[in-house]
Design a protein around this nucleic acid. Structure first.
Lengths: 203, 203
DNA sequence: AATTTTGCCTAACACATGTTAGGTTATGTC
DNA sequence: GACATAACCTAACATGTGTTAGGCAAAATT
């Protein structure tokens, strides 16, 4: 079917665009750069897409949608707060490691969106952060997590899991599961309710 | 003295440039944008600077130098590993909160540097990360920190302290000291050697 | 008072940018 | 075999880009 071919070619275009946007940034990547990478002329791109910004929108909102889905799942299905947080972290790590280029665009290039898409995107981001905050609140209510400033803690957690994108290489020695495990341990070590028995603890 | 005036005007130019580079990104900020913000014509900028990229270089390397200085200080002066790490975090937070615009450029826009400045910059970044790694190694040798993958841990710590730049507002309710305190607690909670007495701990 | 320096201006350049219009060719469908 | 469609092409456009050349007025220096 031709429909399938179109889709494939467009997906290929989006994949290559994400790669270039990650490498050089959105504004520094020209339509001619993108076309050259695909082996076609710049004008030919417009057979598949409407504008340069449409490419950015598609990449950003596709990934935002993936994040929205998994955070909703976690807050629906799992019961225990620690398990919830571990699962959320694992899902987050998975999305980033399986979509390295798109993730970089999602994390850094969304500023180049123009209104009204920009506001729309920021709403989705905020909703995700709120999802994390709900888990923290649960954990504090269950007395599993230490009392912390929710906003501060959620942003710190997100910073940690997002930073993976800066150094993760698909063929590195650490698996997605190991990364998620280590990050969860680190984060939960900082959050979990502790009795005062740490060596060298000074209150 | 005229020397002084020149310096001031140039510093003002760099400050405004950093502000715009943070807001719109380096590539998306034109020399005409920058000039307009300063109330002059684009061509007049070249009385103060040699090229657009020179502005980016100055901002990036100025901040890199600040980071280099404080990490060297910490590893020279302080003895205890936990104290070292706390001081390093405090210094890092201070640099970021006191130079919000330049920090954003330092963290995100350095990719727009071209060789050989790009490699030079990346070396400075790596040296800083190595400085953090030394502290972690010390802490593990002193049996104060849990055994962790040094590279992984140092990158996680940097991710946490760097993310401040995404949400910090100079007039927010949290002071620099409070932010540093909270981050240190969070990070050290995840690092400090623990006896197995955490509530709900499952090995 | 004469001269240099500073900080800006106008005008223009060569080139890169996103995008459109209209045409061509190969592929698959009726 | 006629036809539709997908995927690309060449040519060109209007505009934006970083940057240079040369000049002018005010301030600082001699």
């Amino acid at each position: 079917m031709s429909e399938l071919l179109t889709t494939n070619r467009k997906e290929q275009l989006l994949e290559v665009a994400a790669k270039l946007f990650k490498q050089r940034g959105y504004a520094a990547t020209s339509m001619r750069d993108l076309a050259a990478e695909l082996g076609i002329e710049a004008a030919s791109l417009y057979h598949h897409i409407k504008s340069k910004e449409e490419i950015l929108e598609t990449i950003c909102f596709d990934l935002a949608s993936k994040f929205s889905i998994v955070i909703a799942e976690v807050n629906d299905i799992y019961f225990n707060a620690e398990e919830k947080l571990r699962t959320a972290i694992k899902n987050h790590v998975q999305i980033i490691t399986q979509n390295t280029n798109q993730s970089a665009v999602f994390l850094h290039e969304w500023r180049n969106l123009s209104e009204p898409k920009l506001s729309e995107f920021m709403k989705l981001r905020d909703a995700y952060e709120k999802g994390i905050r709900v888990i923290l609140k649960d954990g504090m209510n269950e007395d599993v997590f230490d009392d912390v400033d929710e906003k501060f803690a959620s942003l710190t957690i997100l910073s940690t899991v997002n930073w993976i994108n800066e150094w993760y290489k698909p063929n590195g020695k650490m698996s997605t599961e190991e990364i998620a495990q280590n990050l969860s341990d680190f984060i939960l070590g900082g959050l979990r309710k502790k009795m005062v028995t740490d060596i060298n603890y000074k209150p």
